[in-house]
Structure formats: C-alpha cells, structure tokens
C-alpha cells in the first residue's frame, strides 16, 4: 500500500496503529470492506458448491472480525481508563525532585535513551511545530531530572533539525519552568547528520571540534535524528567505502561488523539503551536499523500522548530487565 508521492515512498505506519475511533461506524465499514473485497486473488472457483463454500467462509470471516472489533473496543476503553489513572498517579507537575525520587527507587537507569516523537497535523490538539517542540522539551526535562546524560530525539521528517532555534528556546523555557530561571541546566543539541552542535539559547552555534571542555559540563546531550540517519546513511557509507576500496585505500575483506559499527557510531551516534515510543502500537518509523540491536523498546498500548508515566514506566521496565547477550 505504499503510495508514491513525488517519487518518494510515503511512510505507511504499521496497520496495528490504525485507530479504531469511530468504533461502530468503523465496524460497519470494516464489515462492508470485507464483504466487498474481491475474491479474485484468493481462489477462482468455477464450481457452484465452491462458490457457496467461499461465501460461507467469507461470511464467517466477517463474523470473526466483528467479534474481534467489539472485544478490541472494550479492551481499548479499559486501557484508556488505566492510562488516565496512571497519568494521575504519576504526575510530576514540573518538579525535578519528584522525578528524581521516582528514579532513585530503580536499580539501574539506562545510559542513553531515545524517544520517537511525531509531528501531528496543525489542526490537532498539540499539533504543528509548537506541539512537537513542547513534547520534545518535556522529554528533555524528564531526562535531565532523571539524571540521564544522553538523549536521542527521533522525528521522521527531521522537522526539529530544521528549526533548532525554536527548539532551543522551547527547551530553555521548559527547563526554566522546572529548575527556575536562574539555574537552567546547560544542554547541547547535536545534529549528527550535518555534524553541528548547538548550545543554550544565549550561546551561538559552534563546530563540534572547538571548545571540547565546554561540552563536558552540559547536563544533557541531545541528538536529533531523522530518517536520513537510517538506511540512507548506511547507503552513503557503503558508497564511501566502495570509493575507498576502488582507490585501494581499503580492502573489501576489511568491511565487517566491527568497522561498520565504528563508522556508524561516528556518523549517527551510539545505540540507545532504551527506546520510548508514545504512540498506541510500536512503530519504529525508520529509526536507524543499526542502532536498535539490543535496545529495550517501550510503548504503552493505546496511549497517544507524550506523558511522564510512559517515561517512568519505560525506565522501570529497563531496570527490571535482565540482559544476557546471547547467553
């Protein structure tokens, strides 16, 4: 079902993410679709009895779908209520102390976390660029409060990369809300794809090379990734390596997991330990494939908001999980 828009493959989210909102009218639509969907590719039967058999099976399939839709609807309502309650139970109300308290109950925290954020359309509540920046700065504040030093923010189209200025202002503003205007923690925003580093609002951009000492003092280092850091970067790397091989500077036999890993860590960054997704069903959206090797994935079924309880429950799951690479 991938639709071509201007030669570029448009992203198709996983089907399980399809909203069941218009519950009953959606159901009738489903029923109709299943009935109408052409039989052609399944079996072309000439025999009359075959046709009857086919019709019966099709009708039964519709029944099963309807039953499934109904049960799913109730399950969804149940999940929604649970989410509302959780949201109330874990409400940090802009206080880093409470977040730190929550985190200190855990045995271990991840060194690097990643979050997949979504750009919602302008008309929606919390949509557009302001909505995205608001979500991003929320996640940054929680990360700083939890004491995690590295954060990866992934957005499919790279909208945040294009508006770093707004993002910096947004994060600064939110951090001021959490920590007070006098002691806003310092942060650095990295864009690995263009190899740029930005600091807080009142400081100018600078190259990653100079002022290394300053970098050490930041409370959090934020990398912005988008789909170009995924397959495209791997493709670019392959081309570069092919060039080097053609020139004789690199042997083809030397291209192995270790070298590729080294290069991709340079180009994109380290693999995050925990990946949070704030949507209703897991949707990796083209997150760099090399970088989700052992990453713990966390999302909350039927949730559709960037909320603190997803963050803290993700950290909890990470703290409880047992890591045994291959063993």
């Amino acid at each position: 079902m991938s639709s071509e828009v201007g030669g570029v493959k448009a992203r198709v989210p996983p089907a399980t993410k399809t909203q069941l909102t218009a519950s009953i009218s959606g159901l009738t639509k489903t029923v109709r679709q299943v009935i109408n969907s052409d039989a052609g590719d399944v079996v072309k039967r000439q025999r009359f009895s075959g046709k009857i058999e086919y019709a019966i099976y099709k009708a039964l399939l519709v029944c099963i779908y309807v039953m499934y839709a109904i049960s799913r609807y109730f399950q969804r309502e149940y999940n929604r209520i649970a989410i509302k309650l959780l949201d109330l139970a874990y409400n940090p109300s802009n206080s880093p102390q409470l977040i730190r308290q929550d985190v200190n109950k855990l045995q271990k925290i991840p060194k690097r976390i990643a979050a997949i954020l979504e750009y919602k359309s302008e008309g929606d509540i919390g949509g557009g660029l302001p909505g995205l920046i608001n979500d991003a700065s929320d996640v940054v504040c929680w990360t700083v409060s939890a004491g995690i030093k590295h954060l990866v923010l992934y957005e499919y189209d790279g909208k945040m990369k294009q508006s770093v200025g707004e993002l910096r202002a947004g994060i600064h503003h939110k951090l001021a809300k959490y920590f007070g205007a006098e002691n806003v923690p310092r942060f650095a925003i990295k864009i690995p794809h263009t190899n740029q580093v930005f600091f807080d609002v009142n400081e100018g951009p600078m190259d990653s090379a100079n002022e290394k000492s300053k970098k050490h003092k930041v409370a959090v280092e934020i990398s912005l990734l988008s789909k170009v850091d995924g397959r495209e970067t791997i493709l670019e790397l392959t081309k570069t390596m092919a060039d080097l091989c053609a020139k004789g500077q690199l042997k083809v036999e030397d291209v192995d997991t270790k070298l590729v890993n080294q290069e991709l860590t340079q180009l994109v960054g380290h693999e995050p330990d925990l990946l949070l997704y704030f949507g209703p069903a897991l949707d990796l959206q083209g997150f760099p494939p090399w970088h989700i090797r052992l990453t713990e994935l966390y999302w909350e079924t039927d949730n559709d908001q960037v909320s603190y309880y997803v963050f803290i429950r993700g950290l909890k799951q990470y703290a409880d999980c047992k890591m045994n690479v291959g063993k």
């Binding site: 079902m1 089907a15 399980t16 399809t18 069941l20 959606g26 639509k29 489903t30 109709r32 679709q33 299943v34 969907s37 779908y65 499934y68 839709a69 799913r72």
Partner: peptide, 11 residues
C-alpha cells in the same frame, strides 16, 4: 489481529 487491522487500514 494482523488481518483485521490490515483490512481496517485499507478501509
């Protein structure tokens, strides 16, 4: 589940 959601997505 897969089949149901794919039908729904198509719809």
């Amino acid at each position: 589940r897969w089949s149901f959601y794919h039908t729904l997505q198509k719809v």
